[in-house]
Write a protein that binds this DNA or RNA. Structure first.
Length: 494
RNA sequence: GGUCCUGUGGCCGAGUGGCUAGGCAGAGCUCUGCAAAAGCUCGUACAGCGGUUCGAAUCCGCUCGGGACCUCCA
């Protein structure tokens, strides 16, 4: 391994050396989607970021258990209605039909963008027993109370022994001062208290009978319960979007500490938002487009559609903790950049070191290549800096292209460096960044035949034929590379 | 109002106090039947004003601009 992995921990606000609690095992929990409508791009970026983190940890040799939940109950909309119930009523379906439908869609989108599935994908409704147990634990420990059939987390009691607000950097007294007047009739003792169990209103569809009431679990509870169940009371990484930091993750920490005496995760990681024209892309602001709209280009903000790998490349060209702004220009640039990288990937995969080749090492070249390979590792070790890693990969693309053009000979870099360059390029592009070739070149052999024809036409100086073949291939997205050293092809970049 | 992030060349976007980020666009050169592709070279950027330092895009302060969270969102 080259150097140590360092990650920015939201809890400490510092970049720390990553040291798993029980190496080589790593437990990672990421807050998944609430399946009440289509996933939007922000979700995709977050899950893609953790996909790369998952992949890189595995690349480093860790045995990772990646848990990402499906929220299928308890997440309330601003009207206080359960999001899934609301949608079910709207579409006249069973709540579980809504859940199934959007879970399927979600999986489809994840697959489209080449995200690896998590190792465990638990649902909230599948863990109601465990949620009730945790509520009881909190009540027993004095950090929760029942009020009119609902159970609330008691921030005041909790604050005697623990610190509520440490993740998001808030102080309870400040929060209290800012709290808006609650509309009367609240069952809470303190406005900051949050629901663990809610008594269901008569029209509420999703409900379970418990000793407290006929009701449903609070949103924050499931993550505490499921992360604890599958990863233990203490585990390594907990991730999610920045907007979940408060209150969701703050509440999770409180629930974990209140029930088990431990905070849960050692490293908290938060991905930043997607913006459109500088403003957060958000469901409620209505300035978001859906993944399939970005792919098809069917949205008023989009000039054209972009392939899934272009979008993946585009997203990974920024660091996960930075905001990423969407624009047609940026996407167009990413499209060309991605194709350039894809061409490099295809090329290096086709290279084999000549058997029995006489090495004639150009030390400067070999050193440069080794340095670039080192840099790829350093970039990912530095808090999963995919943007920087991609930059280094492009330096490798230059070398790969030089080899194709005959400007750089494999014998000059030697077998050892060549092997390293090849494995580094392929593993970073495909295994870690999760990029893959997506252009369908139906038949390599057929292409070779046409290029053969091109070659003979060229030799016969039959330029009309040459131009015709070139144009035909271009219309199929293939560019002829007519080089001094021979004829080859590449994916068209735009 | 409170908490916090941020301002990099035409655009996007990394950036550890001194060592070429990178991509897109643009200019020139090489190669070429013409091209394309590729390679090489180039613009010498860090909101403004102060300060710390031998040296700051990078640290500190102030000013101005942008944004996020505090209420559902990844």
């Amino acid at each position: 391994m080259i150097g140590k992995l360092r990650v920015v921990n939201s809890l400490t606000r510092e970049k720390e050396v990553f040291e798993p609690l029980n190496p080589p095992h790593v437990g990672m929990y990421v807050c998944g989607p609430t399946v009440y409508s289509d996933v939007h791009l922000g979700n995709v970026r977050t899950f893609m970021s953790f996909d790369v983190i998952y992949r890189y940890l595995q690349f480093l040799g860790y045995k990772v258990r990646y848990v990402r939940n499906i929220t299928d109950v308890g997440h309330l909309s601003d009207t206080g209605e359960d999001k899934i119930s609301k949608k079910a009523k709207l579409e006249s379906l069973e709540p579980m039909e809504i859940v199934q439908k959007y879970t399927n869609d979600f999986h489809q989108v994840m697959h489209t963008f080449n995200l690896l599935p998590p190792d465990i994908e638990p649902t909230a409704t599948g863990h109601l027993m465990e949620q009730m147990e945790m509520i009881q634990e909190l009540v027993d420990n004095g950090y929760a109370y029942e009020s009119n059939g609902s159970v609330y987390f008691d921030i005041n009691q909790f604050s005697d022994k623990f610190e509520y607000g440490k993740l998001s950097g808030r102080k309870t007294e400040d929060m209290l001062n800012q709290t808006r007047e609650l509309d009367g009739g609240s069952d809470k003792r303190n406005p900051l208290d949050f629901a663990l169990w809610k008594k269901a209103a008569p029209e509420h569809i999703m409900r379970w009978n418990t000793k407290w009431s006929d009701g449903f679990p609070g949103w924050h509870l499931e993550c505490s319960v499921m992360s604890t169940k599958y990863l233990g009371e203490e585990f390594d990484i907990h991730g999610g979007g920045m907007d979940l930091k408060f209150p969701h993750h703050e509440c999770e920490i409180a629930q974990n500490a209140g029930s088990k005496g431990k905070d849960g995760a050692k490293y908290w990681m938060h991905t930043n938002m997607l913006t459109v024209n500088g403003t957060k892309m958000s469901k409620s602001l209505g300035n978001s487009f859906l993944p399939h709209q970005l792919i098809s280009g069917d949205h008023e903000l989009l000039e054209r559609g972009f392939s899934p790998m272009t979008i993946r490349f585009f997203m990974l060209q920024s660091h996960y903790a930075s905001t990423l702004d969407f624009s047609n220009e940026a996407l167009n640039a990413a499209q060309k950049g991605y194709m350039k990288l894809a061409n490099g990937l295809r090329l290096i995969k086709s290279y084999e070191y000549p058997a029995g080749g006489q090495e004639d090492i150009n030390q400067k070249q070999a050193d440069q290549i080794n340095k670039i390979c080192d840099n790829c590792h350093h970039a990912m070790n530095d808090d999963f800096n995919t943007a920087l890693a991609i930059g280094h990969l492009f330096n490798l693309v230059k070398k790969v292209n030089s080899i194709q053009a005959g400007q750089l000979k494999l014998e000059e870099i030697g077998q050892e460096t060549f092997d390293r360059m090849k494995t580094t390029f392929i593993s970073f592009a495909e295994d870690i960044l999760g990029l893959r070739l997506e252009s369908e070149i139906s038949s390599q052999n057929l292409l070779d035949v046409i290029l053969e024809e091109y070659k003979s036409a060229k030799e016969a100086k039959n330029y009309d034929k040459v131009d015709e073949l070139r144009a035909k291939l271009k219309s199929e997205g293939v560019i002829v590379k007519d080089m001094k050293t021979g004829i080859d092809w590449a994916f068209e970049e735009s």
